[in-house]
Nucleic acid binder design. Structure first.
Lengths: 156, 156
DNA sequence: TGACGAAAGTTCGACGTCAAACTAAAAGGT
DNA sequence: ACCTTTTAGTTTGACGTCGAACTTTCGTCA
């Protein structure tokens, strides 16, 4: 997805600025995803780890639909990831007693353990970041990124 | 790939900050990519358009290997995208006369035209951005993002 | 109560992407 | 010259993702 870093493009027209912005963001997303992916244990993907992490941090028992909304992905994509995690024995998917359409997602002990191991594996990766990109900078641009994300999300 | 927006997580440990940063960046990349994808004409994907755009802006005749490096993707991925574009008649791939391993990528007239049409289609999308996210903000955070991208790229 | 629209999940085909294994050709080193 | 290493490109299998079509169930409203 990422475009070529537009070092040679003078920002004459206003579109070029946003172009460049999404370009940089696309490449960062890709590079950071690869980097995390490589250290994740037990064949976990970033998407799978994110889901496990979410369930630990915010609690069990969510429906796939709510999870899909939280991660900004389609229901079909969520179905896919849930099936992978279930096959690995990291989650359990129960029917919702109150709504025959719905299901409920729960972590298994193995799932909790896999999430712990992933966090441990991610630590060294995160630890070497401040050297190249100070936390101050991260904290500084975060609100702007959040604002952009929210706008993109609500206006689609 | 994106994680859940960690609104509820107090940034107690230092890793959480970067976690949140990559989370926002991942979601923005995804949302903006979808948005551009939807308006692109002739079944062009964002990756395909980016390649055409690159060839117009920086000139023809690049090798696939150089293109892959410029876009930060693997050679295999580049092979894939080039094949799609060649099948659509938007590029031509000639053998390199000086190096029997290499090839050279050239735009066809149809390719240039498709790039023009894409730019036109993208304009309205870009035009409605400043309302939600001022260009000042974009320009302000761009250098930091560039720095992060460069660090991730060189330290991998 | 019955019909119709909304919501939850699944499936399918397509795409971009990666890592890894592979072939072919060029470059270097002794 | 020969052997080794590097480089260019392709292929394969897996994954996440999308949009669209589809089924089942719920909820609402007349």
């Amino acid at each position: 997805m990422p475009f070529k870093p537009a070092k040679t493009a003078p920002a004459t027209d206003p579109g070029a600025l946003y172009f460049q912005l999404f370009n940089e963001i696309g490449i960062i997303a890709q590079l950071s995803g690869n980097r995390f992916q490589r250290v994740l244990p037990q064949g976990l993907t970033v998407a799978q780890f994110s889901l496990l992490n979410h369930c630990v941090r915010l609690g069990d028992g969510w429906t796939p639909a709510r999870l899909a909304a939280a991660f900004q992905i389609t229901k079909g994509t969520m179905t896919n990831t849930l099936q992978k995690l279930e096959a690995k024995g990291f989650i359990r998917i129960d029917p919702d007693p109150d709504d025959a359409r719905s299901k409920r997602v729960f972590l298994t002990p193995a799932g909790k353990q896999a999430r712990e191991a992933s966090l441990k594996a991610l630590m060294p990766e995160l630890a070497q970041l401040p050297a190249g990109f100070p936390p101050d900078l991260a904290a500084e641009i975060l609100p702007s990124l959040e604002r952009l994300r929210i706008w993109l999300d609500t206006n689609r």
